[in-house]
Amino acid sequence: MLDQPTNERRLTIARAMAEAMQQEMQRDPRVFVMGEDIAGFGGIFGNTRGLFEKFGKERVRDTPISETGFISAAVGAAMDGMRPVVELMFVDFFGVCFDAIYNQMAKNAYFSGGNASVPMVLMTSTGGGYSDAGQHSQCLYGTFAHLPGMKVVSPSNAYDAKGLMTAAIRDDNPVVYMYHKQLQGMGWLGTEPGATLNTPQEGYTVEIGKAKVVRAGSDVTLVGLAMGVHNALKAADKLAEEGVNAEVIDLVSLVPLDRETVINSVAKTGRLIVIDEDYHSYGVSGEIIATVTEHDVSKLKASPARVTFPDVPIPYAKHMEQFCLPNPDKIIAAYRKM
């Protein structure tokens, strides 16, 4: 579905992430990886598979369940010339260690007037849809993107996953790399087939801060990231059957945010729907709508809409969670109301 270079290697996002880390570790001895169950186990979500066997326990370190300790340690190591990649197993666990992230990792470059840098990657899993309940299913995109000093990316497919990981490791700034569990390619929790894509073997980067128009259209702009992109593409397919031509934008990066691509698209379509699995209020969806309305409200032919998770903790029961989650039908319903 996505327009990407083709070759014979279809990778899951998990494998694409691991391949990027492996290649960067080979290129650059400063790169090392740490987190819970990331060594022999290969990461709960498979994204570090093979690294331990290749590089050993000096560079691929299982940590104690001490997120404040090892994420702060990554900040210190990064400032001392290393390039750590650390994993926060589920983004929901940020609550036990956020100071390390937003007060240290994200601010030390600024506090040094740009004289010090914190080149590290914090990778973390997001998203629900498989009944893991309210402490293991959140996205929290807006929470991270709200706070200055860290780049925030979230791939929707394996091609971008590899290129973004490579770019994140090479970046001199801290990058929060949020991967959606339902795109990861772990069969045991179900996977969106559209996320598994042809992925070149040789290293490459995907630019951080650049959105992608993944489907061109003229009637309505659907903006999303990660899982939201796939919901948008499915909605666009259904809308096409009715002769409605939806343009789909994959934000790819939240910080920096490619406002221009969104503005240009809405200038063309006049209609905007934002799809975001994060909570409804105070998040990415509001930011995208504000971006468009602040720029030129006259371009809008209808009030913008958002398809988001309601402002409630994520319920466990399957039917309740599915009731709350964005899906293609909700996107189509939002379009019909315009």
Partner: peptide, 16 residues
């Protein structure tokens, strides 16, 4: 089992 008669009516689940 995520049922209405559960401790939280199915909102919490086995870890909650």
């Amino acid at each position: 089992f995520g049922k209405s008669t559960g401790l939280s009516g199915g909102r919490g689940g086995h870890m909650h």
